[in-house]
Structures are given as C-alpha cells and as structure tokens.
C-alpha cells in the first residue's frame, strides 16, 4: 500500500513538471509534436526507473554518514555526503550511456525511435532531481525508491504528452503575436498545473 501511495503521489501530486518545474528545458523544446514527446517521455521513464534505485544504493552503501560500516568498522565515522552531487551526476551520465548502448544492441527499433533524445537525458534536470529528492526524502527501502523513480517518470511523460497534444491544436488558433511560441506555452503549462492541483490531498 505504501508503494502505491508513493507511486500515485509522484505522478499526480508531486509531479516533476507541475510542482517542481524539473526538466522544463527539454519539456519546452521537444513538445512541438506528440510523436517526439512520447519518445522523450518513454526515455525519461526508463532512465529514472534505473537511475533512482542505483543512486539509492550508492547513497545507502557509500555516501551516507556511517554508510561504509559494512566494509570495516573503522570506516564508520566517515561521512561522504558532500560528494553526492558529483557521484549522482557521474552515475546518471554513465547510466544514460549504458542504456543507450544496451538499447542499440538489443532493441534497434526502439533505439531509432528514441533517437537523439537518449543522450540529452543526461542533462535533464528531472533525472538528477529525482535522485536528489530520493536522497532528501530518505525512502526506506529499495522498492520505495524504485517506485518513486517510476512514478516521477510517468508523471513527466503525462505532462509532456498532454502539452504536446495541446500545442498541436494551438497551431490553428490566433495567439497574440508577442505571446506566440514560448509565452503561450508557459501560460498553458501554468493552467495545466492549476488543474493538477486538484489532485492535492489525495492519499491512499
């Protein structure tokens, strides 16, 4: 039950885009057509689902104060938490590389549909954000951390697909010239976020 709660919360209430604005850059840049939005969204789900649990293991067994105790009791006093930024970003960058190679080898069709989006994900704030939120909220088990990663990814996917669908329709409407493009997209995202606020307070 706890897992389901974290999952729903990560998708709707603490949505990466609507509540924390993470990954906005690629969200704004790639949301012009539904097709590319789905590609990027799937890639984000995939990478978040793998990188958040990996960062959880790193945090638990290497970085946290006293985490090195499993190695030898002399190391119990060591606190490496100041290294977490550099560790997480290096882990994410290499996971993205690895995922890219694996997909290219075993699922060429998926690889060609994701295309250039995979390497871009390394610098997508939502991935590092997911890892840092996981660290801050101190999820208790590996399962909770993975569910949180998956939920955040699904939330991001929903947001970008919804926005791109609206933007496809928006092409036929008459937007005031200074608002065209970026401006109206911001206001649209704001309105969508207000709609998502109605999920607040749901708990399972």
């Amino acid at each position: 039950m706890e897992h389901l709660n974290i999952f729903i919360k990560a998708i709707f209430i603490e949505n990466m885009i609507f509540a924390y604005f993470l990954g906005m850059c690629s969200y704004l840049a790639i949301s012009k057509t539904v097709k590319s939005a789905i590609g990027l969204g799937l890639a984000v789900i995939f990478v978040l689902f793998i990188s958040v649990p990996t960062c959880y293991l790193l945090e638990k067994y290497i970085l946290k104060a006293g985490a090195l105790q499993w190695l030898s009791s002399d190391l119990a006093a060591i606190d490496l938490s100041f290294l977490s930024f550099i560790m997480f970003i290096a882990t994410i960058a290499s996971i993205v590389q690895l995922v890219e190679m694996i997909i290219e080898k075993y699922a060429p069709a998926l690889y060609s549909s994701l295309g250039i989006f995979l390497p871009l994900i390394a610098v997508n704030c939502s991935i590092l954000g997911g890892a840092l939120f996981m660290q801050e909220r101190e999820y208790a088990t590996l399962g909770e951390a993975s569910v949180f990663g998956l939920g955040s990814g699904v939330g991001w996917f929903l947001a970008i697909v919804a926005l791109s669908a609206i933007r496809e329709k928006l092409r036929y409407s008459n937007v005031p010239a200074p608002l065209r493009g970026l401006g109206i997209t911001f206001i649209l995202t704001g309105l969508m976020a207000i709609a998502f606020m109605s999920f607040m307070g749901i708990s399972l």
Partner: peptide, 19 residues
C-alpha cells in the same frame, strides 16, 4: 504562492518583453 502562478508570471513577463 502555488507553483503554477510562477509559470504564468514568466509567461506574462515574456509577453511584456516581446511586445
């Protein structure tokens, strides 16, 4: 204070700047 309004304010800033 809610997050959505930040987006709308930036949208309005862009509107003013571009006009």
């Amino acid at each position: 204070i809610m997050p959505p309004m930040a987006l709308i304010i930036v949208g309005i800033i862009i509107w003013i700047q571009r006009s």
